[in-house]
Design a binder for these strands. Sequence first.
RNA 1: GGAGAGGUGGCCGAGCGGUCUAAGGCGCACGCCUGGAAAGCGUGUAUACCUCGAAAGGGUAUCGCGGGUUCGAAUCCCGCCUUCUCCGCCA
Length: 424
Amino acid sequence: MLTVKYISRNRDSVVKLLSVRNFDAAGIVDEIISVDSEKRDLQTRMESLKASLNSKSKEIGVLFRQGKTGEAQAAKEQTGIMKEEIKGLSAKLNELEERLAGLLVQLPNIPHESVPAGEGADDNVKVRGGGEVVKPAGEGVPHWDLARKYDIIDFELGNKITGSGFPLYKGKGALMQRAMISFFLEEAIKAGYTEYAPPLMVNEDSGFGTGQLPDKEGQMYHVQEDNLFLIPTAEVPLTNIFRGDIINSRDLPLKITAYTPCFRREAGSYGKDVRGLNRLHQFDKVEIVQIQHPDRSYESLEEMTSYIESLVKRLGLPYRILLLCGGDTGFAAAKTYDFEVFAAAQEKWLEVSSVSNFGSFQAKRLKLRCRDEGEKKTMIAHTLNGSALALPRVLAAILENNQTPEGIRVPEALVPYTGFEIIV
RNA sequence: GGAGAGGUGGCCGAGCGGUCUAAGGCGCACGCCUGGAAAGCGUGUAUACCUCGAAAGGGUAUCGCGGGUUCGAAUCCCGCCUUCUCCGCCA
């Protein structure tokens, strides 16, 4: 969420920068500015009225204590009119505040100046890549067939138990999951992240804090009876740990990580894209989160990107890093890099990580602030997060790229965690 | 799920209709004292918003959250959340 102050002071540049997203903000921005000025005008009037009511009340108290009940009664009469007027102003003020809040949540984050304009995936910019994109030995079997052949994932049974998009991992398939989780967590800890095991359901406040609510509740499973949401990513509980906090700048950045299952309703999924592990309703992911000083968040974004790159490299997967264009950058993000690995049999790039700097957008909603040593004023902190990594597509790429006539070769980095080198 | 007791500043803790502008203590910061430190003494120590301003200042709100009563609410009433104790259920 952008602050009204920022919008008012930078009206033209806000509109211009949001156009990088193909978002026409002019109407909303102007309405925000006018509603805000009306609101402040009203607030000033109401507060001065309240001030005189408060002092009048104090006088009445003094009169009563002095036993001058007559005078006190007379003074009480005067307060009636003031109270009515305050009531009216306050109702109007509430209405304006709600309108303002409703307008503010409609504005997406302002993209960083380095974000290219563009409408969709085609306009994303490749930053760099690595690894050899080669056709695997043999016929290049897609991972869903390999999963069946080696009996490590059962999609039909998952379907039977729950529904499509809920695979059942079995034997070495389940172990591969566990190995990846351990590997990713251990690496994150080595990189200075503190591990958490957060709740998998969150309340409305948390959903609002990170930007899933309002409007995007469609992507989350909702437990109606308790009004809780299954997390679509660990980003939600992890970032909300710090909701409402004021952090001493010397303690920044806060670096935290967690493994969690993630649940996504993914309303608009169809076709080949959802075959096998490509897109699921439930999947496992290790997430990294940073809370950073506003002056240093873009350094953190690069640092996180390099860290994620190191993971992909160690898995030996061909990868590319994309800088998302304005149109493809998520609502709450200011700048996002996507990581894709190449799945040799499908001959497709699969997104395995997305790392974003949200700037002050989430922190504003979270009331997450920091304060420099010796300063009185607080600043809105910056939040960042990234997948490190999402498991299913990594597994898909490993299966497809590492297939050999003898079996599936396990990446060396994972062997200490799996205890086997090949899936036969 | 049932019964009872609580939720007050960074922390502990008093207050239970009007000098609450929230006592007192701890912690923290600065100053005095000291060769240096401790102790002692003094001063200060929340957040958001509004207004005017270079700053200082002034105003409003916040005692778990949301409503209500009242000229006036930390204090009274209603709803919710949450913590603890006991009971029930349970991996």
